[in-house]
Design a protein around this nucleic acid. Structure first.
Length: 544
RNA sequence: GCGCCCGUAGCUCAGGGGAUAGAGCAGUAGCCUUCUAAGCUAUUGGUCGUUGGUUCGAAUCCAACCGGGCGCACCA
């Protein structure tokens, strides 16, 4: 990457001018926000002012002299203590030919090369349809998995199906209540799908002995007929649907508890079995076997994570959880820290809540009360083809940081097809493709990229040169900011639209320039294609 | 009470110690005999919740406070 090259040059000059031997990590080089400060800049002079007993201004100026002599840049300038680097056209032309050569492998990195990585997301209880909150986690997890692949990991997408706990019994009770065989309760799930199922399955209700068994039948059906189709509509393909119930039946929970006991991580108190999570920074110890002999959900979850790390040997596991479960993070991390050690790493990404706004008012969602908006509702509301609707939703959810409490305006969802920037990006791709179609039949000379010297051309290439950095920061930053991708896509589309406006590509009078610009268009199509299809996961249309 | 997250343009949101704080939408004024105007250009709009602190430099880091969301089970 270019920043590495600049860093090396700075290190060399520091050695020459000040006899300073620093490490790469000590030097910061960033892309400038404005062209008048060059292409890249470093603040190294500020950092060294104290140590060298000189003003940043002086240091920067001396460095600039040295860098101009030795660095191989078009120009290096010292401005008020900043050292600004100007790159020459050859650098940008080089990036363009690199993209043309590497094609879909452009910006492939090896940060997680060969690592076995799992992303577990959505994992909504099979007691009802997917909601908007599931949409946020769904798209986020799917895209993070894409990014992991791009940096060399072997990735698996997993949906944890909670089909073994009390919520299944609750589902059974809810159905019995809907069928009039049980007193209704506030705790029960409500919603049209409960009523429907109760009506369509009178026989099963009559014949099935207990509510857990009944709930199991309903849960299995909800999973197949509601959840899986929604997931597929969202364009998500899971490698694994991991059943909690089957894990329990295999005896993994009992095995896990025995191991916890064996290694001294537990103790008994008040008739219950406790895990010493406080040893790993949890607020309090947690019960894993209740006084009545029942295992807690936490016990199952520990076994589940044993399965991930010991049975399936993932190096890195990322769980996507809603903010309403953030209180659970401490004990889960503690349990893994206590038992997994350096075998693997667990990371938990927390999605903040999605707040629905309807007619300017907050619309309260509750699965229990049956007031919620499903992913299917949303996709239908957005309209258009199924794949368009999914792309709009995907792009919208991915345009916010996970930390942001999102407002989702349902009234706007309908119009969003015109206003969502996803179409801006798609239009850029369609334009690129159109130009290439129009040029297909032309007889062009061998392209000479050194003809690409217009500022719009350089800026377009520079934007493409950023992609590796963007991808690297997503996997490096703690919160996995996949929303960088949608912002990047918009920026790239913008640079292209500007180029399109200022630089005519197909020009019968100037075939050599046409040939060079066609190459640039090809490169842009490659990069935008990577971002849209391989990373964000939306369709890149050749025509609109 | 304790913990996590948020407070930035009229609205929805970016901004992970640097130069003049940005984008989309909304508003205003322009640009189609030329590769797709789903586009481009110009422009209006800000006490970055408040007050202190750290720093050469703070929207960004720290502390306190004010607002808002979500959690604090031998539920899942």
């Amino acid at each position: 990457m270019i920043t590495d090259k600049i860093t090396e040059s700075i290190l060399y000059s520091l050695q020459q001018v000040f006899q300073l031997h620093l490490k790469r990590a000590d030097i910061e080089v960033v892309q400038t926000s404005s062209r008048e400060h060059g292409d890249y800049a470093s603040n190294v002079a500020f950092r060294l002012a104290k140590e060298l007993h000189k003003s940043p201004k002086e240091i920067a100026e001396e460095l600039a002299v040295s860098l101009n002599a030795t660095g191989g840049f078009k120009k290096v300038e010292a401005v008020n203590g900043f050292v600004n680097f100007y790159l020459d056209h050859e650098y940008f032309q080089g990036i363009a030919s690199q993209i043309l050569k590497e094609k879909a492998h452009y910006a492939d990195l090896d940060i997680l090369k060969g690592k076995k990585v799992q992303v577990e997301f959505i994992s909504a209880n099979p007691t009802g349809p997917l909601t908007l909150a599931n949409g946020r986690g769904g798209f986020g997890g799917d895209v993070l998995a894409n990014v992991f692949s791009k940096v060399g990991a072997k990735v698996e997408r997993e949906y944890y199906v909670n089909d073994g706990g009390n919520q299944v019994k609750l589902l059974g009770d809810s159905i019995l209540a809907a069928a009039g065989k049980l007193e209704p309760s506030d705790d029960f799930y409500k919603g049209p799908y409960i009523e429907e199922w109760a009506k369509d399955n009178a026989r099963a209700i009559a014949e099935t002995k207990d509510s857990f068994a009944l709930g199991s039948i309903a849960a299995a059906e909800l999973l197949e007929k509601k959840i899986k189709p929604s997931v597929s509509r969202m364009g998500i393909l899971f490698d694994q649907w991991f059943s909690e119930k089957e894990m329990i039946d295999r005896g993994e929970v009992d095995e896990g508890i025995e191991n916890l006991k064996k290694y001294g991580h537990t103790y008994e108190k008040d008739g219950a079995l406790w895990l010493k999570t406080t040893e790993k920074a949890d607020d309090k110890d947690r019960v894993i076997v209740k006084a009545d002999g029942e295992k807690t959900y936490f016990a199952n979850d520990i076994a589940y994570h044993f399965d991930k790390f010991y049975k399936r040997k993932f190096d890195l596991v990322v769980n996507f959880w809603g903010a309403d479960h953030h209180g659970y993070v401490g004990r889960m991390m503690a349990a893994v820290a206590l038992t997994v050690g350096s075998v693997g790493t667990l990371r938990i990404a927390i999605m903040q809540m999605v707040r629905l706004v309807k007619d300017g008012q907050e619309y309260k969602m509750s699965k229990r009360k049956g007031t919620y908006v499903t992913m299917d509702d949303l996709l239908e509301l957005i309209g258009g083809t199924e794949s368009d609707a999914s792309d709009v939703a995907r792009f919208f959810f991915l345009s916010r940081s996970f930390n942001t409490h999102m407002d989702f305006d349902l009234d706007l969802a309908k119009e969003r097809s015109d206003k969502n920037p996803v179409f801006y990006v798609k239009y850029a791709y369609a334009r690129l493709s159109g130009i290439l179609r129009n040029a297909e039949a032309m007889k062009l000379p061998k392209p000479d990229l050194s003809l690409l010297v217009e500022p719009q051309e350089t800026e377009l290439i520079e934007q493409m040169a950023q992609l590796p950095q963007v991808i690297a920061s997503i996997v490096t930053f703690d919160e996995y900011p996949v929303h960088f991708l949608t912002f990047y896509a918009i920026d790239l589309a913008k640079k292209f639209h500007v180029f399109y406006d200022k630089c005519r590509v197909i020009d019968e009078e100037n075939l050599s320039l046409t040939a060079a610009r066609i190459e640039l268009v090809r490169a842009t199509q490659i990069v935008l294609g990577i971002v849209m299809r391989d990373l964000i996961g939306i369709d890149a249309p050749e025509k609109m």
